[in-house]
Amino acid sequence: MGLGIDLNSLIFGYLAFAMVVSSVLAVFSKNPVHTVLLVLVMVVHQAFLLLTLGSEFLMAVQLIVYAGAVLVLFLFVVYLINLRKETKHSIFVKRFCLCSLVFLLFLGFMGVNLYLIYGAKKFEQAVLPFNPLEKDNLWWIAHYLFNYYLLPFEIIGVILLVAVLGAVFLVRKVKTTEEA
């Protein structure tokens, strides 16, 4: 505190900065393998962000599911379908410079707006509907997921069903016009 910066915001700043940088790099990287690895870096930082917020269960899930399973799957896909090189296109949007100029102007406008709205006062403290220190993290998640958010939990199941069916349906063998 002697420096005027507390440790919490320092750690948060580092994690947020690393996440933003790694995700931007992932978008602009030419090599799909690099992209997947950069997303992995992002996911790990996100997991530690969850840890600083005191939700250790979510951190473990994030590490196991995203870093452990999903991204490895992505890596397999990249290797299996031999996607090492990016397919090159001519520039997709016409008048790219103008578009990016407009985008930057828009960002600046948003920034000025946000500054005008929030610059003067401090951000409000977030309202929590419960005291997280009363029970442990996992208890709260289970309590809310299986009591209050039971229906959304079921809807997610139906959405996943749609996604699976759709993926199978779209890769079915059909006669294209060229073949017929």
């Binding site: 958010y149 809807i155 959405i159 749609v162 779209l170």
Partner: peptide, 27 residues
């Protein structure tokens, strides 16, 4: 009656439509 359900059911409403639009992709 809550935002999460509203969001998820909006996704459930749109996902099949994305697929139905692409139905004719072979032709």
């Amino acid at each position: 009656m809550d935002l999460i359900t509203m969001y998820l059911s909006m996704e459930l409403m749109s996902f099949p439509v994305y697929l139905l639009i692409a139905l004719n992709f072979a032709q």
